[in-house]
């Protein structure tokens, strides 16, 4: 028996919009600690890791560890039927091949049940160890989205370089080149507008912009994004979900030809 009641149902709607284009099918894992997911894109180049902690739900009941295979496109279709202010409850029974999403309007005058078929998914779980990163950049998520979108109109890849001067996003394509440098800026009115660069040593890595742009679909989940860089490791692009957890995207760097 599983029953997870999320008052801020819009969070789940946003999570699905953030990940459904990157991953088609995924197993949602439910345990006493929370509701989570780890899945790779079909080419196994990028990975999404989601955590919604149990404490973030108004009511959280998960009698035993459960894995529910869902088609994210279908799940998104169902969640789009929930209002932005709706309370969403995820319900499942042991051994059942369906999951139910219940949507309640804030005034409780409309209650909807959507039952979705589950699927068997052979997913490969990767062990992701804690790592030291050479540089961690925290910046407004909207600025990161803007940069990725702008650069994708010029080139296919972005070189992200962190030095003590700042963080540089560069691309080149048939029509020319582009460089965008952000300097650390903590003298802002609102903390979420700050750009903070923590650098242990300079680092420069190349990534496919197609994936970076896909990650920015999570922009509405958080005002800030944290980009952790290390040579020898996939980049981590993390959007914190207030009070609840995170969506993290991992992307393997391209090797210079």
């Amino acid at each position: 028996m599983l029953e997870l009641r999320l008052v801020q149902g819009s969070l789940l709607k946003k999570v699905l919009e953030a990940i459904k284009d990157l991953v088609n099918d995924a197993n949602f894992d439910c345990s006493s600690s929370g509701f989570s997911l780890q899945a790779m894109d079909s080419s196994h180049v990028a990975l999404v890791a989601l955590l919604l902690r149990a404490e973030g739900f108004e009511h959280y009941r998960c009698d035993r560890n459960t894995s529910m295979g869902m088609n994210l496109g279908n799940m998104s279709k169902m969640l789009k039927c929930a209002g932005n202010d709706d309370i969403i409850t995820i319900k499942g029974d042991d051994g059942s091949d369906t999951v139910t999403f219940m949507f309640e309007s804030p005034t409780q005058d409309k209650i909807a049940d959507f039952e979705m078929k589950l699927m068997d998914i052979d997913s490969e779980h990767l062990g992701i160890p804690e790592a030291e990163y050479q540089a961690i950049v925290t910046m407004p998520s909207s600025e990161f989205a803007r940069i990725c979108k702008d650069l994708a109109s010029i080139g296919d890849t972005v070189v992200i370089s962190v030095t003590k001067e700042g963080v540089k996003f560069s691309t080149r394509g048939d029509i020319g080149t582009a460089n965008i440098v952000l300097r650390q800026n903590t003298t802002v009115d609102k903390p979420e507008d700050a750009t903070v660069i923590e650098m242990n040593e300079p680092v420069s890595l190349t990534f496919a912009l197609r994936y970076m742009n896909s990650f920015t679909k999570a922009t509405s989940l958080s005002n800030t994004v944290k980009i952790s860089l290390s040579s020898e490791l996939p980049v981590v692009v993390e959007y914190k979900i207030a009070e609840m957890g995170y969506v993290r995207f991992y992307l393997a760097p391209k090797i210079e030809e």
Binding site: H44, V45, G127, P234, A252, P253, E256
Partner: peptide, 14 residues
């Protein structure tokens, strides 16, 4: 695009 490694080059399967 053969200069794009997969994640399995960095992380091990559990």
């Amino acid at each position: 695009a053969n200069n794009q490694p997969k994640l399995s080059a960095f992380f091990t399967l559990k």
